[in-house]
Write a protein that binds this DNA or RNA. Structure first.
Lengths: 231, 231
DNA sequence: GTCATAAAATGAGTGCGCTCAGTTTTAAAA
DNA sequence: TTTTAAAACTGAGCGCACTCATTTTATGAC
């Protein structure tokens, strides 16, 4: 994660040249000293502890002290691994969600009609969030709007991951003549995602009924895809 | 606001009947005792103080103590008028935004092509947020996702206000044959708004460039309206 | 006016997220 | 091994949002 080998090109060019460095660490395959391992293990314990506590008693009611204690570290150490409590939440659930997204895209065949694909896809995400609604609320709050610029990259990754994975599906639908061809697939992907995400936010934020949410989303998607249809 | 007259039906039915009460307050047009006036004035001072401070030094850097002091009240009194600091933010800017929305809809003629109308509309909102970007960030965060159920009503009112005002514009466009008629105007309104709002969130949340944001939004809207076009 | 009661205001206190000056641990140099 | 330097860790302490037992103020009855 630290990108310890920034540039491994043979042409050792302009960058501040440390000639002897090249001799010192030439053939070390996987050093992983005590430092590295401790850090890795500590991070694992932190994530595990935070996940368990967030799941058990919710985000708000869990204190950072509790998490630190459960992970067996000092209360201040926690903030060396996550810049804030919210960061920790994202840290805990990002991998889980990325995996969910990737698996969903793998399992849904891109030969289905586009509307069916998107419906199946979003249904899976919704089911995931519904399994732990309280966490989903906290999580979506952080995912949808982060004040800290440092946090934006990993986080916007999730919306982008979905939207970008949608693009080739749109392209495929265009190729088989289902969708208008004068349409940028990436834009279309973002559009579909926007509609889903906005409804999701409304649902999670306003305690709207699940049935209503599904109905609204269904109508919106149907309409958008219909608008994209080749004629 | 307090709904002091819960049920004024002539049939004084099951509810705990207070017969003499009917005689006491029969013909009082606008009493407004000292209590009422004090409360009203205090609320005004709070809102004014909070607005000034938020504008001057931002949401995060303004403490509730400062606001209370500037409004000439005790620090605890503030929380009798707003349940939280975030609530206060919404309280301060909701009216301003509602007015902005209403004026925009008044001034944009509904005879223009739908795409032009929506573009003009969203441009105004964007200009408003851009005038005070830091406030917009805090505000959107609260508007887009509120954990407190008690807050949802006044807040969802803003997205709903926009989406609902869009619906008749869509209907008019249908009437003049610009937009497909097999399309629920309300759904279409929500769809247009979703696209705008999602892009706005991405912009405000991720510090994306303004130009990029405008371009993306423009493309998305163009595409969505094109999808709605009657053929 | 006095009294009784309910509404409103108050600010010291509480809890929690986060910081940072000081300490400990690891790794490399001598 | 000892020395040195840097990286990692720690927890007392700070600032701030929010609470609540107590006090102040307004209102109607007499």
């Amino acid at each position: 994660m630290k990108a310890s080998a920034v540039a491994r090109r043979t042409s050792n060019g302009t960058a501040g040249a440390k000639a002897p460095a090249a001799r010192r660490a030439p053939a070390k395959p996987a050093p992983e000293g005590r430092r590295e391992r401790n850090k890795r293990e500590k991070l694992q314990r932190i994530v595990a502890a935070a996940r368990a506590l967030f799941r058990a008693q919710g985000f708000d009611k869990t204190t950072t002290q509790e998490i630190a204690e459960a992970a067996g570290i000092g209360s201040g150490t926690l903030f060396l691994y996550a810049k804030s409590k919210e960061d920790l939440l994202v840290l805990v659930f990002r991998d889980e969600m990325s995996e969910l997204i990737e698996r969903a895209f793998e399992e849904i065949p891109d030969t289905l009609p586009l509307l069916e694909q998107t419906t199946m896809l979003f249904d899976r995400f919704i089911a995931y969030h519904r399994r732990d609604f309280a966490i989903a609320q906290s999580l979506l709050r952080e995912l949808s709007f982060l004040s800290n610029p440092a946090r934006r990259d990993p986080v916007n990754a999730i919306p982008n991951l979905i939207a970008n994975n949608l693009a080739p599906r749109v392209a495929a639908a265009q190729a088989r003549g289902e969708i208008r061809r004068d349409l940028d697939p990436s834009t279309a992907g973002h559009c579909l995602f926007s509609v889903y995400y906005q409804q999701l936010l409304i649902w999670a934020g306003s305690y709207a009924s699940y049935a209503q949410f599904k109905r609204n989303l269904g109508k919106l998607l149907e309409f958008v895809v219909e608008g994209m249809r080749a004629r």
